[in-house]
Amino acid sequence: MEEIKVTLTETPKQKPAEDALGFGKYFTDHMFMMDYNEEKGWHDPRIIPYGPIALDPSASVFHYAQEVFEGLKAYRTADGTIQLFRPEENFKRLNSSNDRLCIPQVDVDFCIKALSKLIEVEKDWVPHAEGTSLYIRPFIFACEPVLGVHPSKEYKFIIILSPSGSYYASGLAPVKIYVEPEYVRAVRGGTGFTKTGGNYACSLKAQQEAKGYSQVLWLDGVERKYIEEVGAMNVFFVIGDEVVTPALLGSVLPGITRKSCIEILRSWGYTVNERRLSIDEVEEAAKNGQLKEMFGTGTAAVVSPVGELKYKDDVIEISGGEIGELTKRLYDELTGIQLSKREDRFGWITKVC
C-alpha cells in the first residue's frame, strides 16, 4: 500500500466544550479517505480536511444501499496517552460485513496504521474529561455511477472522528427498554450480523413508536419469541447463577464489547451461556425472583444497566430500578482497562501516541 499523504486544513474549527459534547454531534478537522476500483484495488490513502463528498446522483449506494460501517473509540489516559481498545476486532468485523455486502476486503493492519496516523494528526481533539472519548466511524460505500443491481466496481473508504460524551444523557443510570412485538430487525440468512445502514433504517419505525423508552429490544424474525439484541447494544441477563446472552446465529451483531464481557466474566469464574433465550423465560424468571440483572453492551454505551423492560402489557422492574452489582463491576473493569486504570490482562490495548 502507498504511503498516506497528509493535507492539513487551513481553517481549523473551534473545539466544543467538553461538558457539552453529547454523542456524534461534532467532527474533527480531518478525515482519512482511500478509493477502490477494479484496476488499482485500494489506493490513494490520504488524510484531508473534513468536508463534503462529491458523488454522482447515480452512485450505487443511493439506490442499492451497498454500505458498511464500524464504531470504536480512542481514549485519553490520566498521563495523556491516547489509545485504542481492540481495534483489530473492529476491522476484522468490517471485513465480515464487507464479505456479506460484496465489498472488497481491507487490510486490517493498514487500517490500524491509517487510523493511528489520523488520530496523531487530530490528537488535540481527544477530550480529557471523565466519561469522554473520541468516537471513530470507519465506513465504506459503493460509488460507481451506474444504475444496475450488481456489486459496485468503485468504493470509498473513509474514517471520521467525533469527540463525544456519554451515549445516554443519563450516563450510567439504568435505561428503560421496550420489547418490540410486531416489527422485526433481521432474520437468519440476512444481514443482521453485519454493520450496514439498512439494519438501522428498518429499526427506526419501532424506535419512533417506543415513546418513553431509550431503546427497542428485538425478538427473532420467525417465531417472534427469542431475544436478539437492542438497537445499539447486545444484551445480557443474570438469571439465577447463570449469565445469559443470545447466541450468535446470524441475525445478531457479534459485538466486540459483548465478546470482551464474556471473556472477563469467564475469567472471574462466572457461568456464561450463549443460547436462545425467550421473552417468556425472562418474564418467568422475573416472576419467580431469578432475574437479578440485565445490561446492554456496545462501543458507544460500553455497559448500560437496564432498570425496566416492557413487553406488551407487562412491565418488568429489574434490580429495583438500580444498577446491578455485576453490571457495575463489569463497567468499572472495562472502562478501567480502556483508560489504563486497571491491568490489561488480555492484551487489548493499542497505544497510538
Rank of each mutant, 00 (worst) to 15 (best):
K73T: 03
I112Q: 06
P174C: 03
G71A: 08
I337E: 04
C202Y: 06
H63V: 05
V146Q: 10
V149Q: 04
Q66H: 05
E2G: 08
Q208M: 07
G165T: 02
I82K: 11
G190L: 01
E89R: 13
V238T: 12
T350D: 05
I82N: 08
N288C: 09
K312W: 04
E209C: 05
R275W: 12
Y331C: 14
V272Q: 02
D280I: 11
T327E: 07
R224P: 10
R266F: 03
S58A: 15
F141C: 02
G198P: 12
S152M: 00
G336M: 08
K156Q: 13
V106M: 14
V106Y: 05
K156N: 10
R275C: 14
E281T: 06
G51A: 10
I103Y: 01
R100I: 09
P145C: 02
E10C: 08
H43T: 10
V352K: 08
D109Y: 04
H63K: 07
I279T: 09
Q290T: 10
S116P: 00
Y26M: 12
G189N: 02
K113M: 10
D29S: 13
C102S: 14
H150L: 15
E130W: 03
T245I: 14
Y167S: 05
F27A: 10
I136T: 07
I53P: 09
A74L: 11
I349L: 07
K156T: 02
K113I: 06
L161P: 05
K5W: 02
V6M: 09
V235F: 11
F62V: 09
T9K: 07
N273H: 13
P127Q: 02
V149R: 09
L55D: 07
L147A: 01
K153W: 01
H63M: 03
E89F: 12
A210Q: 00
E308Q: 13
S133V: 00
S58R: 14
Y213L: 06
W42E: 12
V252H: 01
I318Y: 02
D19A: 06
K351R: 15
S340H: 06
K310P: 00
E274D: 07
D56E: 05
P305A: 02
I112N: 02
K259N: 15
R76H: 05
E89G: 14
N288V: 04
G298V: 01
Q215A: 04
L172E: 11
A247I: 14
A169T: 15
K5T: 13
L72P: 00
S260K: 02
A285I: 01
T299E: 04
K92D: 05
K117N: 07
V126T: 10
L204G: 02
V244T: 06
D79C: 09
K205R: 13
Y178F: 06
V175R: 00
D56T: 02
P127A: 02
D44I: 06
V272P: 00
K123F: 03
Q83V: 07
I48T: 08
L72Y: 01
T257N: 03
N234F: 09
Y36K: 11
V184A: 07
Q208K: 09
R275K: 15
L84M: 06
I349G: 00
V106H: 10
